[in-house]
Amino acid sequence: MQNSHSGVNQLGGVFVNGRPLPDSTRQKIVELAHSGARPCDISRILQVSNGCVSKILGRYYETGSIRPRAIGGSKPRVATPEVVSKIAQYKRECPSIFAWEIRDRLLSEGVCTNDNIPSVSSINRVLRNLASEKQQMGADGMYDKLRMLNGQTGSWGTRPGWYPGTSVPGQPTQDGCQQQEGGGENTNSISSNGEDSDEAQMRLQLKRKLQRNRTSFTQEQIEALEKEFERTHYPDVFARERLAAKIDLPEARIQVWFSNRRAKWRREEKLRNQRRQASNTPSHIPISSSFSTSVYQPIPQPTTPVSSFTSGSMLGRTDTALTNTYSALPPMPSFTMANNLPMQPPVPSQTSSYSCMLPTSPSVNGRSYDTYTPPHMQTHMNSQPMGTSGTTSTGLISPGVSVPVQVPGSEPDMSQYWPRLQ
């Protein structure tokens, strides 16, 4: 039975679970980093996980050691009161100082060594604690504590007292930064006198190289990059290397530039699409467009005044059976039934097929058609009795279509119309 579990990581490298990497692998990681390889490249070359490479390099940059820390136990506290007071002093002298600059000053002034120097995250935590204590304490208590930490007896009751030896409130920041720059020169002199001055200088240079600022491109470089971006948004590694040799930039910087440029292009394309949609959409909808001609068919113009009344309900007709019959029939052209047409008796099958359309009241044959006459024609229609054979009435077949029909004066039988409509 094995005491430890061995495995293979996602890159194909072998590791022992819970145990640190061998010293030979750690040394190779540092050597590759000094030669300029990126952590992701080191991870692929040595088949070590990216997190492990970053952790080893980060500890090497901070402490200069590649040895693993002790497994188990607690780390001794490195942010001692003396170190905290120095950090507060540096922050007062130059409020814009960075944590890694404070760390360098602690090393250069001999406050800490490589073994007990606090990390950048520890210094940031100390600065946050100082800021929170400043908010919790009152103004007087804060000034007393700062005077105690600074070891001075001057008056701290006013704002300019934060910067000793100065009279203009805006000047101390520059003086403090100048003092810090002077301390940086002392850093070089002190570290050069040490035993491991060369190694420390190499480590600091490598650290500065990794902690780079934003790349500033010249106009020629920007023009070359934009020209390549117009050709393709995704250049391959050969195109990037050719462009890197042409404009004297690292291939990694060119790759990052193209990634950022593609993101910018997507944002601009989104804005262009929004403007295009806004320009195509009308600002207001016309009133006429809300009524579609496919839904509402136009009603033909009436030929006679009587045809303006298109349904039985508008003429005072309360018989719903006839109203439904007229509205359900398709529109037909106007025609006239003459008196000489043969009077065919209704076929029983045809009569039964339209039995649902006729009223059940037996008085329908005896009703006159003056009910369908509009009010303004009552006088004219009353002067001509319906009993004469020459009287013409208008029957409504569908809305908007008038059918003048000659009705025999002897017997106005409704059943004569249905064979004609089939």
Rank of each mutant, 00 (worst) to 15 (best):
W100P: 07
G141F: 12
L149H: 14
E62W: 03
L32G: 01
M137Y: 13
S122R: 01
A131V: 10
K86A: 15
R26W: 00
P68N: 05
A37M: 13
E93T: 13
S43L: 01
S43Q: 00
C40G: 05
L21I: 04
P118I: 07
G12S: 03
K91M: 02
D104V: 09
R38D: 01
V126S: 07
L127R: 15
S122Y: 00
K134S: 10
Y61P: 01
I117P: 08
S4G: 12
A131L: 11
V84S: 06
D41G: 04
V120N: 15
A139W: 13
D115N: 10
R92Y: 15
A131K: 15
G110K: 14
D140M: 12
V16N: 11
L130Q: 11
T80Q: 03
I87V: 06
G13M: 01
S35R: 14
L107I: 08
Y60S: 03
L57I: 08
I45S: 09
N17S: 15
G13Q: 03
I29Y: 00
G58M: 14
Q27T: 10
N17C: 15
I102W: 03
N9S: 03
P68L: 00
R19T: 05
A88S: 10
S24A: 13
R77E: 01
A88K: 04
G72V: 05
L130E: 11
N114I: 09
S85T: 11
L46W: 05
G36L: 01
G36Y: 04
R77T: 06
Y61V: 15
Q10Y: 02
V111D: 10
R125Q: 00
S122I: 00
V48G: 01
W100S: 07
H34F: 10
G13N: 01
V83I: 08
P76A: 08
K145V: 11
M137S: 13
H5A: 13
P20Y: 04
S121L: 00
N150S: 12
N9D: 01
Y143T: 13
N50L: 05
C94P: 05
V30I: 09
L32R: 02
E109V: 08
L106P: 02
Q89V: 08
G73F: 01
I97M: 15
S121F: 05
D23G: 08
L130G: 10
A79I: 10
I45R: 13
G72H: 05
Y143W: 09
K55Y: 03
S108V: 12
P76Y: 03
E109T: 12
R147N: 15
S108P: 06
R67I: 05
I56S: 00
N150T: 11
V126E: 00
V53P: 02
G72Q: 05
N114Y: 09
E101S: 08
P20I: 02
I66N: 04
Y61I: 09
G36M: 04
N114S: 11
M137P: 12
E93L: 10
E101Q: 15
R69I: 03
Y143V: 11
K91V: 02
Q89T: 09
C112F: 05
V78H: 04
I123R: 03
P95A: 12
R77P: 02
K55H: 04
T113Y: 09
R147M: 12
D140L: 11
C40K: 07
L46P: 02
I29Q: 00
I56R: 00
R92Q: 14
L32W: 05
A37L: 12
I45N: 07
E133K: 14
S4K: 11
L146F: 11
P20V: 01
R59K: 06
D140P: 12
S122A: 00
R125G: 06
C112E: 00
S43V: 04
F15I: 04
R59F: 05
M148K: 13
R67Q: 12
K28C: 08
Y143I: 11
S74V: 01
V30A: 07
G51Y: 03
V83W: 00
K75N: 04
K28A: 09
K75W: 03
L107R: 15
G138L: 12
E82W: 14
A79N: 14
Q10T: 06
D144Y: 10
A139T: 14
R77K: 11
I42P: 02
R128V: 05
E93W: 05
L146N: 13
V8R: 12
P22F: 00
L11S: 04
L149E: 15
A88V: 08
Y90T: 12
P39M: 08
S132C: 12
V78A: 02
A79W: 00
D104P: 00
L106R: 03
P81H: 07
P81T: 08
I66E: 02
D104F: 14
R128C: 06
Q135N: 14
G73T: 02
G64N: 04
E62T: 12
R92N: 10
L146E: 12
Q136Y: 09
S119D: 00
N3V: 13
D144K: 13
E101L: 08
E62P: 00
Q89L: 09
M142Q: 12
S96L: 10
P95C: 08
S121K: 05
G36A: 02
R69K: 14
I66H: 07
V126Q: 03
F98L: 06
G141S: 13
D115Q: 15
V48Q: 00
G51T: 08
N129H: 14
Y90I: 15
R44A: 07
N116M: 11
R19E: 03
P118C: 05
S108G: 14
L146T: 15
L149T: 15
N9C: 04
F98D: 01
Q136C: 07
S132L: 10
V111W: 09
S85H: 11
N17V: 15
S4F: 09
L146I: 14
N124Q: 14
S54F: 04
R105A: 09
E101P: 04
Q2T: 12
C40Q: 04
Y61D: 06
E31N: 11
N17G: 05
P39E: 04
A139F: 10
V83E: 01
F98Y: 13
Q47V: 02
Y143L: 11
N116V: 10
D115M: 11
R69H: 11
S35N: 13
S122C: 05
N9Y: 05
Q2P: 11
H5D: 07
